[in-house]
Nucleic acid binder design. Structure first.
Lengths: 133, 133
DNA sequence: TTAATAACCTATTGACTCGATAGGTAAATA
DNA sequence: TATTTACCTATCGAGTCAATAGGTTATTAA
C-alpha cells in the first residue's frame, strides 16, 4: 500500500503543475484545493524539497514551485523518494541485507519479476500524464 | 510491501506441494525446512485453514495438506487472503469508503490501472509455477 | 520600519500493525 | 496410556502512520 506521503506528494506536484505561473504557490492554497491539512503537508513538502523535487521560498510572496517541466518528472521517482522504496518485498529493497536463502529461494523470481513490472509502469508515467489541460 | 504473512504462506504452500505424499505434513518439519519459527507459522497456517487453502489434522500422524492440486491455486488468491487486500491505495481496497473526490481525482486511473496489472500478474501465477521438480 | 506572510523546525500524540513469543488445551494415534 | 500434533488465547516491544501543536526564521509589501 502506498501511504499518504507518496499519494499526497503526487497531488502536490500535480497542483503545482496546474497552477504554475512562474511565481511561488503558497502551501495554504494547495492545502485548500486538495483538502489536506496544511500542517501535515508541511512535513511532506519538506521531504520533497530535500529530495530535489521542488523548491521553496520563505516570506511574503513565497511558496513552492517545480524545478523542472512536468514531462521531466516520473511518477516512479516521486513515489520512490517519498516511500523510501518501491520494492514489493523487504529483501529486494535497496540496501537490504543479502538474503542467505537467495540461492535456493523459489519465490525470488516471482517478486523480482513483479518489481520490474512495477518499476516500468511507474517510471513510464510522467507528471505531465496526470495533469489536466 | 508484502508482509511475512503473505510471503510465509506461499512458502508453506510450496513446501506442502513439494512434500506431498498423501499424508499430513507436520508443521514442525515445514518450520525446520523453511527456517521459520514454528510458533509464528501456527498463526499463519491458522488463517490458511480458515481461508480454505489447506487442511489440518490433529494428533499423531497429523499435520497439514493441500486441498487442491498445485495448478489449481493462484498466487494472487493466497496473497489476497493473507494480506487482506491486493490494493495499492486504500480507496481501491474492497469495502473501502467511497471517496468523495473520485469524480475529479487525477490519480485514480494511475492506481487502478496499476492494480489491474498487479491483479493479472499474481492471478496469472499458479502454485505449480513455483514448485521445483 | 514595521506588519504581514509564509516557509521551516522540533516535538508529541494515539491508534495501529508487524513479527514474533508464551503457555496451555484438545484431538488422534502407536 | 504416552506421545504427538494441531489448535487456542493472550501478550509483547518496536515501529509506522497520519496527524496536531507551537514556535522561529526569512522575505516582502505597505
Amino acid at each position: 500500500m502506498i501511504s499518504t506521503k507518496g499519494r499526497y506528494a503526487i497531488r502536490v506536484m500535480i497542483d503545482l503543475a496546474e497552477h504554475d505561473n512562474g511565481t511561488y504557490i503558497p502551501l495554504k492554497d494547495i492545502a485548500a484545493r486538495q483538502e489536506i491539512s496544511k500542517k501535515y503537508l508541511e512535513i511532506i513538502v519538506k521531504d520533497m524539497v530535500a529530495g530535489g523535487l521542488i523548491k521553496g521560498a520563505s516570506g511574503k510572496g513565497g511558496g513552492y514551485k517545480l524545478l523542472r517541466k512536468p514531462e521531466d518528472y516520473t511518477v516512479g521517482e516521486v513515489i520512490e523518494l517519498m516511500e523510501g522504496s518501491l520494492a514489493t518485498v523487504a529483501c529486494l529493497a535497496e540496501g537490504a541485507a543479502p538474503c542467505p536463502r537467495a540461492d535456493t529461494c523459489e519465490t525470488l523470481a516471482l517478486w523480482s519479476d513483479f518489481d520490474k513490472l512495477k518499476h516500468d509502469y511507474f517510471y513510464g508515467k510522467r507528471l505531465s500524464d496526470l495533469v489536466k489541460q
